[in-house]
């Protein structure tokens, strides 16, 4: 459905994306991860036809993203990374404007979405909170029931309750067979919604895998308080775990998903005073991927 081939798009400063190759199949939800400035938004600019690539091509349903942008927009929904609405409008006026520009007459879906996100679109957008603006952006992207969705950090500014609503929305769209490319910073969101993920760093794709594999490689830190710190450390190290001493009475052990069982069995022989789990953030996962990447090169 979405096909990116040898896409290179560089900025005057030398940044950009280089030789990207990936596709998102029909009905697939693809997560697009990477630190700030890695090239996520640049890729999306190319897919939206805002920027002509230097080399390579991107197509959606076989249509060229620059040449056939208006045709593509008929079945595409988009949430910009940095949402900025036309100033001076009310939320209601904005949604009506977008419907008129798209030629959408049926507002059933729009009303459903307004209910779902509990948004009252009356009032000037300028006076909206960050979260309300984000909700308005989400509604504008989904209200014409598009087949393909390109979402650039769609939940930034939403509270946890609304982030969950958004996950529900994505799962519902997925069930309807929609194709979605979604960049995100929040691992839980990607984990719950996406089938596959792309990880980009410095304008190049460094990893492309399914979410299960990514989860398996996701390490957790377990902080164990114990009275027999030396022997505990020895036992764990000989079992092949990475161990660090934290203070006088605690150690931290790094365990990947597939080794959890072995870890539990190893610590069964130790006097554990307390056990804390330190969940790895997405940044930690990036660091791991990037660390690996650097070791390889």
């Amino acid at each position: 459905m979405i096909d990116v081939k040898d896409l290179t798009l560089t900025y005057p400063g030398g940044k950009g994306v280089f030789d990207l190759n990936f596709s998102v199949n029909e009905g697939e939800v693809m997560g697009y991860l990477g630190p700030n400035g890695a090239g996520k938004t640049t890729t999306i600019r190319a897919l939206m036809g805002f920027m002509r690539p230097d080399k390579g091509s991107c197509t959606i349903r076989g249509l060229d993203c620059v040449k056939h942008a208006p045709e593509i927009q008929k079945f595409l929904g988009y949430i910009p990374g940095e949402i900025s609405f036309l100033d001076g409008m009310t939320g209601e006026e904005f949604l009506k404007f977008m419907n008129d520009m798209r030629g959408t007459r049926d507002t059933t879906r729009q009303r459903q979405l307004l209910d779902m996100f509990e948004l009252d679109p009356r009032g000037k957008i300028k006076k909206f909170s960050k979260g309300m603006k984000q909700k308005l952006g989400i509604i504008a992207a989904f209200m014409h029931d598009p087949d393909v969705l390109i979402l650039d950090e769609p939940t930034s500014g939403l509270d946890p309750l609304m982030q969950n609503r958004f996950v529900e929305l994505i799962l519902g769209e997925k069930a309807k067979g929609k194709t979605i490319l979604m960049s995100s910073h929040i691992f839980e969101e990607v984990e719950k919604t996406c089938d596959n993920v792309l990880i980009i760093k410095d304008g190049r794709i460094v990893e492309q895998s399914d979410v299960q594999t990514l989860k398996g490689s996701r390490r957790k830190g377990y902080i164990i308080k114990t009275s027999e710190i030396v022997s505990a450390k020895q036992a764990l190290e000989s079992a092949g775990f990475e161990v660090q001493t934290v203070g006088e009475t605690a150690i931290e052990v790094y365990v990947t998903g597939e080794n959890t069982d072995r870890f539990i069995k190893t610590i069964a022989g130790i006097t554990v005073l307390d056990l804390d789990v330190k969940t790895q953030s997405l940044e930690d996962i990036f660091m791991e991927y990037y660390g690996r990447e650097e070791k390889r090169s």
Partner: peptide, 14 residues
């Protein structure tokens, strides 16, 4: 201020 993105995310040519 990037609000132009909304004009271009409709089926109208640039």
């Amino acid at each position: 201020n990037s609000s132009f993105a909304y004009l271009l995310s409709t089926p109208n040519s640039r």
